[in-house]
């Protein structure tokens, strides 16, 4: 039964991807991209990746649609040229697809427990997580503790991308007029009332995902994205100025940098206490408690950075809109 459902979802994925490429109106393409992400999240959930599904749903269907739309507002929504020379790319693509599909016949079947991926490293994580870290969610344990270096790197990539966006969009000509004050959706009473009602619940759910990440699907990346979505909704409803009043851009800058510093700081604290970089066992007298504390702080750092970075990116696009 679940196989049928998976095949249905995967086929829809292919159809929506082809539609995204074919459709002329970029606005429609971005909306289809949101559907594509939601289908992808459902597929991830069927494949037992609850954490990844939550991330894809929050980021792909939520944040990325808003950011792409605010960028579209600056560039125009129509694709002006038909594809000029389509036969050569089509030929290349067809040949490559056939080759990759031919190569898949050597791959292990879906769900095969004997597949090479499941033989090395992963069993060790599954076996030792209850003993060394003692939190139920192995994904969080691997993310924050066993592979903490990786995650630190990813956090700095997010930080760097945010700085890049601010550099590229922050520069404006001297004689550019000041952005006009936006009023938000003043004439749309119903969305505004319902949206206002929802914002606190979205932020609350984000905090739940942040601090429940040790026990169920969730963690800093998802929580940061969900909270950012809530504040973006507030910005769409009440206007840019109101949102910047609630969460000023100086605070956002402090969040982007502070989260990364918090993550790195935990690592440095571990060195000062006599352990290795990002080895949380020394943070408390009991190694397992130390791991809990370390994971909590690190996830908090991730959440703060991701939330700050996504909001800064959103505001950078939105501030350009009224030139």
């Amino acid at each position: 039964m679940i196989v049928l459902f998976a095949i249905f979802l995967l086929t829809l994925l292919v159809i929506s991807a082809i539609a995204i490429v074919r459709v002329k109106n970029l606005f429609v393409a971005v909306m289809l991209m949101g559907i594509f992400s939601l289908l992808m999240a459902s597929t991830f959930f069927i494949l037992d990746a609850a954490d990844v599904a939550l991330t894809e749903a929050a980021i792909g269907a939520g944040v990325s649609t808003i950011i792409l739309l605010s960028a579209l507002a600056l560039t125009g929504e129509h694709e002006r040229f038909a594809t000029a020379n389509r036969w050569l790319p089509l030929l290349v693509v067809t040949i490559t697809t056939t080759t990759i599909i031919y190569a898949t016949f050597d791959k292990p079947r879906l769900g095969d427990p004997e597949a090479p991926v499941h033989q090395h490293v992963a069993p060790w994580y599954l076996q030792n997580t209850p003993e060394l870290i003692d939190i139920p969610n192995v994904v969080t344990a691997v993310l924050a503790s066993f592979r903490g270096y990786d995650t630190l790197g990813e956090v700095f990539v997010v930080l760097t991308a945010c700085i890049g966006v601010l550099f590229v969009l922050g520069a404006r000509p001297e004689d550019a007029p000041k952005p006009a004050k936006q009023q938000g959706l003043r004439h749309h009473l119903i969305p505004k009332v319902v949206g206002r009602l929802l914002v606190p619940f979205i932020v609350l759910f984000g905090l739940y995902v942040q601090f429940h990440g040790d026990f169920g699907p969730g963690g800093g990346f998802q929580a940061g994205a969900i909270i950012a979505t809530g504040i973006m909704l507030y910005a769409v409803l009440e206007g840019e100025t109101a949102a910047l009043k609630a969460v000023p851009s100086s605070l956002l800058m402090a969040m982007v940098a502070g989260g990364a510093i918090l993550y790195g700081g935990v690592g440095v604290a571990a060195i000062l206490l006599g352990g290795n970089f990002l080895d949380y066992s020394v943070l408390s007298s009991n190694p397992v408690d130390g791991q809990h504390l370390g994971i909590l702080l690190v996830e908090l750092g991730v959440g703060i950075t991701v939330c700050g970075a996504l909001l800064s990116i959103f505001h950078a696009f939105a501030a350009r809109e009224h030139k």
Partner: peptide
């Protein structure tokens, strides 16, 4: 939440 948001979304679209 769905009962709150779905009619709102339809309304916003039509509006």
């Amino acid at each position: 939440f769905l009962l709150l948001t779905c009619p709102t979304a339809s309304y916003a679209l039509a509006n």
